[in-house]
Write a protein that binds this DNA or RNA. Sequence first.
DNA 1: ACGCGGCCTTGATCCATATCAAAAAATACC
DNA 2: GGTATTTTTTGATATGGATCAAGGCCGCGT
Lengths: 257, 257
Amino acid sequence: MAILNELSEFRRPIAINLANRPTPSNCEDCGARHNGLCEALTEDELAFLARSAQRITLAPGTVFVEEGEKAAYFYNINQGNVRLFKSLPDGRRQITGFSGPGHFLGLAAGEDNAFSAEAMDSVKLCRFSRASLMAVFEELPVLERKLLGVVMHELVLAQQQMLLLGRKTAIERIASFLLSWAVRLEMCPAGGLPAANSVLKLPLSRTDLADYLGLTIETVSRSLSQLKRDGMIDIPNIHEIILLRPRTLSEIAEAAV
Amino acid sequence: MAILNELSEFRRPIAINLANRPTPSNCEDCGARHNGLCEALTEDELAFLARSAQRITLAPGTVFVEEGEKAAYFYNINQGNVRLFKSLPDGRRQITGFSGPGHFLGLAAGEDNAFSAEAMDSVKLCRFSRASLMAVFEELPVLERKLLGVVMHELVLAQQQMLLLGRKTAIERIASFLLSWAVRLEMCPAGGLPAANSVLKLPLSRTDLADYLGLTIETVSRSLSQLKRDGMIDIPNIHEIILLRPRTLSEIAEAAV
DNA sequence: ACGCGGCCTTGATCCATATCAAAAAATACC
DNA sequence: GGTATTTTTTGATATGGATCAAGGCCGCGT
């Protein structure tokens, strides 16, 4: 199979989630809204990048970045979703983030990947070698500033997640997650509220949700049921949630006293 | 008091922890070891930066960066320790990291600070305005690449902490923390082990430890006591811990099966 | 030295969430 | 389209860590 041959090249790739938008609202550099690194670049810059890129398709479940392996590539995702995670030897897993179309993924801080990345569905992406990224940096110093913005935004998200994992209750975690997912889907700006009755598409299993929020699937399910009982949300099907009362959800999420 | 006047200028500073060493071993750029941004720069670059810096001393307990305030400054710490944290309205607190001498601190991803920073002891630092940082960037594009490395390393640490907060038990968190603190104090490379009977200085209160590890002070105290009972560590005094069996501690920390 | 106040440790109890178990719903497979 | 398989929900029980409550230790000021 041709695809399998391509996949076999993916044994030892990258490391850092540069996903998510650097700024949720309009970019202060260019004034335009952008969804990731590629959207932040001009046509010329994109063309330059494209020269050293390989286009690849991954089957669902493919682990194309493995923690601890040498970091050799970086990626820009064109289609599909990716989960980024770290694992313990006994199988416990912590999902540290998700990447989607337009998101940038890779760039090791050291020699090795700090986490693993796995395709959640059929994923199309562009792969660049580490060396070619360095060459691009020489040619496009502006890229580094833009990357800096992307990574800094990642760090802000990571800090939010630390607060969630270290100090929030199960219900608060779920409420926080739903609102942050609405931001991710551009249904509202960061810090803002989505409209009442917004429909949230969740391309995640309950297991993913649990591993992202530091809970068990049972607790995730129970918390969602309770929010539904309390009239905060509706759950027409497993992968869709309707935010009936975003304002109250937000109060739960931020634990207003 | 002169000091108080200076402090009053610190009502609305910066946002991101760029602390900790970008690479624990020798830097791949310059071959030298460096402890933070300043150590990563040449004499000339440092001189350029110094032109726009103000030297400031902070009293213990001073909160000089406040979450949600406009990000106006960034800092390089010369002396003392700083805790970086996020809080919930009801007082729950999550410490996201610590900064020490040589560490860089600041740089908002957006307009506002994403966290607060507080002096743990008497702190001396250099303060730069956001505008002067931009000017420095124009003059020293290399700075951006170096900053990128620092921020990426921060992100790796944040991801490790997410795994700890989301999936590790109390004992595992304490063991992980002790070993990571040894790395921080340069008693061993990242991923390596400190020598048996190494003495670890902890300039933290149990409350700081609890807020960093997502536990209560009682659980921190009990876990330390248990590790002592089990012969893993000794605790000659509250701010010093002797690592009797680093290898076993490491097995606990990484939950080897 | 003494006493006071702020950490820290230890003990007793409670509770939020994990774990174990099974039914129900969704999805995949013939 | 119906059955097998996986995923999700719900229920019953267990438990790790939180909470409540003393007591001990140490530094500090008088």
